[in-house]
Design a protein around this nucleic acid. Structure first.
Ligand SMILES: [Zn+2]
Ligand SMILES: [Zn+2]
Ligand SMILES: [Zn+2]
Ligand SMILES: [Zn+2]
Lengths: 158, 158
DNA sequence: ATGCCTCTTGTTATACTATAACGACGCCGG
DNA sequence: CCGGCGTCGTTATAGTATAACAAGAGGCAT
């Protein structure tokens, strides 16, 4: 499933993610407005993370508003509802690879091409939190490095 | 060891962290200048994460430079050499709880008081990365939530 | 139909985070 | 002496994010 770095039928990725978003919105009484839907489509175009201002530029070019809150609100909606994730290490956003199912996402993030593979792993700090009396609300797990495509020709880790 | 949320002798934390930094710098030919040392001391005052501009304000009040690069460079030095860590989820910095020993840190981060407990765990995405041919260079693991002290009286998770 | 409420999108303005680029100074080896 | 290097300081700018307010659309009770 985490095939962001593999050759795959990406049209299927896009179609199933959009369908999952539609169904989830239906089920929860949320509205997937043109702005929100288009924002998701833009993220879905590739498995690369996009900055909010990259998304904003695309939206503006298509006739939507041109000011930061337009993009941040649409992205916030997608993130809040699990259709997209924020990659903390890049201050950027990526479409969810498993929309619909609730999940604690983790990511392999290529520092060269910014593509992101979403993985499903166990919450890794649960036992420690338990022992300390710490109530975990959200866990960020991001491995940064080089993807198979970038590995050969990217410059050193520094 | 991860006692940021427990009552403990914090003077010992500070003293041993400073000593470890001195020894590491000695051993590697690095210079722990007054600016860098003071920056580390400021971070060590509590186990809470501080923003770069919080640190900068403290430094300025003590006669150091007042412009962002002053703080960012000192913090960069501390992070590069393992004396402090950056908390991605807060865009903030915290003193390392295990200076001297190389380690892949992970954190319990309280969203209310910003205190941080540093834990030692295994790199959680290694098998997935192996399977994909992805070369991990750095892994961010941060659990955000409420610490034992803040749990009773903090507002809801939203 | 009118008024009211909520949600969405748009705006202006501002705050917060971070780095590039250049200058001055001290130190040390040649 | 002097040249290179490392550190600290500056100015200026880039990049990320949110607060606060205005306007329109649609639902729904009166
Ligand atoms: Zn795909
Ligand atoms: Zn790549
Ligand atoms: Zn302590
Ligand atoms: Zn707390």
């Amino acid at each position: 499933m985490p095939h962001a770095f593999d050759r795959h039928d990406h049209g299927t990725c896009i179609a199933s993610a959009l369908r999952a978003a539609e169904e989830t919105c239906d089920g929860r009484g949320l509205s997937l407005t043109p702005l929100r839907r288009r924002t998701l489509e833009i993220l879905l175009e590739s498995h690369a993370a996009l900055g909010a201002y990259d998304v904003l530029a695309r939206l503006e070019a298509e006739g939507f508003g041109s000011k930061p809150p337009v993009a941040y609100r649409a992205l916030g909606f997608l993130v809040d509802n699990g259709f997209a994730h924020r990659i903390e290490g890049l201050s950027a956003f990526v479409a969810c690879a498993r929309p619909g199912a609730p999940h604690a996402p983790s990511f392999l993030v290529c520092r060269s091409c910014r593509r992101v593979a979403e993985e499903a792993i166990e919450a890794p700090l649960a036992p420690e939190a338990e022992a300390e009396g710490f109530a975990i609300e959200r866990t960020v797990v991001e491995a940064q490095g080089l993807c198979p495509a970038c590995r050969p020709h990217a410059k050193g880790a520094a």
